[in-house]
Amino acid sequence: MPEATLTLSNLDAHYGDFQALYGLDLELAAGEVVAVIGANGAGKTTLMRSISGLLRNRPDAVRYRGQPIGAMRADQVAALGIALVPEGRQLFPSLSVEENLMIGGKVGRAGPWDLGKVYELFPILEERKAQASTSLSGGQQQMVAIGRALMANPDLILFDEISLGLAPVVIRQIYQALPSIVGEGMTAMIVEQDIAQALAMSSRVFCLMEGRIALEGRTEDVTHDQITAAYFGVEA
């Protein structure tokens, strides 16, 4: 069996006394796109923070291409090729649009993504490149957040609710751009409240409930009822 890109084994996460994740096991193959869904507070963001090194774990709780990375700092994880598009965009307010993108390239990994290619994907950003990132609309800010992650030329990219708070037309625009991003051999994990959107993009889906995986399956196999049950914790 080929080496998995990402392997979580018995991953826990805690905030003080509160346990947010309980013994998660999960495997992503190279080039795979998976969706992670779940109700508010299910632990989706916590999962992404754990993978990206913002929350530290046992070394072997998170493996990346076989290498234990669970205890690494976020900057070390980033250097290995994992990028996170964080919930709520979280651009740097003191940096211009272009500087936000450039700092994404700070990890210095070789690959197809550079300023020119990001501007090709989101032309509006080139027009606004000298502006403060805070002066952009929500959708444009989300484009910067995505571009910033791409500038690192990651092999694994994590999207945390990129449609949150955006108008449907903007969401459609951003999701239209996604295939050309993850089509380039990247492995991706998409956290989304908009279930239909997430399922349309992915080949497998995980549903989190109160810090545990309540449902897992190939996208075409899981039924609407199963998702409803896993999502709301009721028997369908």
Partner: peptide, 15 residues
Amino acid sequence: RAVSDNQDIAQLMGL
């Protein structure tokens, strides 16, 4: 400036 703005996110950028 990035670290001053947001230490966690700056760390995600490899800093």
